[in-house]
Amino acid sequence: MGAGTPGLKPDRMITAAEPASILPLRLEDVGYAVGGKSLLSGISLRIEAGRRLMVMGANGAGKSLFLRLCHGLIDPTQGRRIWANGETRAETQAMVFQRPVLLRRSVAGNLEYPLALKGVSRAARRNAVSDTLERFGLGHMADRPARLLSGGEQQRLALARAWLMRPQVLFLDEPSSSLDPSATRAIETMIRHFSEDGITIVMSTHDLGQARRLGEDVVFLHRGGLMEHQRAVDFFAGPRTREARAFLAGDLLW
């Protein structure tokens, strides 16, 4: 169905940069509690368009939860999450998880899936998929089962799938924490390209080197609370809080 009828949808997909901006994202006194236990609390901030924001903090500080809450996988139990276009869960956003979750089908099939969910016609899907394969140098593995790729290839595919959805903002939860250095490089290069395409990046990492390389802004979380939100250069040059200083110093110790 729809093959050879380049209607509205193909165009919409390919020049998807125009819909109303969903950024900045504002969090107003946001908290998240499960069973009376507060996991995030009192977080107020603005996530600006076009920046690369690093979410930092020790294990258990609430980084993953923070990303899921922004993305809309969980809803705040207090406070408000406000997208600039007024939606509660904006459509034009994507998330890449620490361990890539790929479907048990081919590389091309994985790329095609979210487009099928959006009701994009078969012909338009095929075009978008082949563009994406080419752009990220995945063409030679289009027909290979996604589950049998190496860890680095899987994460590159997950990133390509996110890019294909033309998000305005991309959330990444420690995207390279289980990858070797060269795969990590490849991921960072992709993230940079996304950023150059105008995609806002919000990414958690506990790799300080990576945060220095990629970060323009830094959010520092400690025990579910927002301790700092400032420009990356300033954060690394002189963190304002004791917790952040200890965190950065800890990196020097081990």
């Binding site: 899921r68 993305h71 996988l73 459509e91 994507a94 998330m95 998880f97 979750v101 479907l103 899936y113 979210p114 969910l117 959006k118 799938r161 959805m165």
Partner: peptide
């Protein structure tokens, strides 16, 4: 295994 990713994809 899938639910977060599938919800994220819409």
């Amino acid at each position: 295994e899938y639910h977060e990713q599938l919800r994220s994809l819409g």
